[in-house]
Nucleic acid binder design. Structure first.
Lengths: 122, 122, 122, 122
DNA sequence: GTGGTCTAGACCACC
DNA sequence: GTGGTCTAGACCACA
């Protein structure tokens, strides 16, 4: 059940990114319990230390709370989650527009491209 | 005159990215001459070896051509440039939409966000 | 009625610390009776085993005495209490001054800081 | 040359604390270079991974900057250092006064104790 | 059972 | 040479 990781970036960082997305999207509901480090590590096909590192980072960001012997839980602070989702989206949009502009795309061309994609999946 | 680099990613890769963007946007016109490795390195504030590596990669991708005695030139193959720009844009758009979807944004919300950004700068 | 505990330190140790402070300050008077382990645990919002461990340590230090049938009592040895309070204060002051010195505060600066605090609350 | 560590607290946390104190006191001057991870680890008598963890934390706090292949450097942001020193001192003083109050010391008694100490060393 | 820490050692990219 | 990452495995305290 090992997940796919891009070897050009640290595995722990990719795990952080994916788990963060799950929290922001609600797939991991606020207050919900996480599986144990060992289980999560096995599910992802990585060493428990690697998974622990990812979880530690999520904790420093406030998305995850650790209870010494009971396990880890998603934060119940929905305001934090919402704020982070908005900030993340904002950054992504700004970066995306910036990069597209750098390779010579105008906003009009962009809109066309995006519509082509979203309609294709609709 | 040293540029800003993100220390979490290889410098040479960041240079490749920036130069590639300049070619794709036309800021570096097809067939145009590039400055010497030494000058480019000094301008970017990096080790010449690092700049050399970046240029080598651009050459591998066909965007830059080396002429033994005359120096380096941007490719004149505008078809290649256009194809690469389209492919790059395609990948960026797909990745962007995928990531936004992962954190729970619907296409409609996305459109609104993007419009807010492009209008704000227009 | 669960108290607040710092999850980075053992809960039982934090309970010991707080109860010890109450004995040293006289909030728990010498010879006074303690509530049952179960009640204390419930009041603190911890597992009875955890409270038991805290009380055992207090007993080891001589601050608490257990009478088989009647329950637990604060020691009546006021000399012990006074000595412990003095020793604790001594250690705290020494540690505090040492730490402040390590981050570059002179005794004079210290005095000013402390006065600012005590006056502010006075 | 192994340093002394308190086995009741994580070694990496104690290293963080000591290095932070050295930065705040100026023993590690702003902009100064740090020894390599391996050397620092050897000097402290710990595993390089442990030292790296401590340095990583100092970096997240902004006190240390890492340059990919050149090594680590103390931040040159003296404003940050000063602010952190003031904040640290503030916290220490508040905690200290709070704890002393909890074990029954009045501000007056405190002042006497501190003066006894500082005079003793003067 | 849980999370946390530490060691040892290997491998890698970068410059 | 530098820092960074990952694995493997052990040990511990806590509840």
């Amino acid at each position: 059940m090992a997940e796919n990781f891009d070897s050009s970036r640290p595995i722990y960082a990719q795990i952080v990114e994916r788990m963060k997305a799950k929290v922001l999207s609600g797939e991991y509901p606020p207050g919900g319990a996480l599986a144990s480090v060992r289980d999560l590590a096995q599910a992802a096909g990585v060493n428990p230390n690697t998974m622990q590192r990812a979880l530690a980072q999520l904790e420093t960001e406030g998305l995850v709370r650790t209870e010494r012997t009971a396990g880890r839980f998603i934060t119940e602070d929905t305001a934090l989650i919402d704020a982070l989702r908005a900030a993340t989206a904002e950054t992504m949009v700004a970066d995306f527009l910036e990069k597209m502009k750098e390779i010579g795309y105008t906003p009009a061309q962009l809109t066309a491209l995006i519509e082509a994609h979203t309609e294709g999946k609709a």
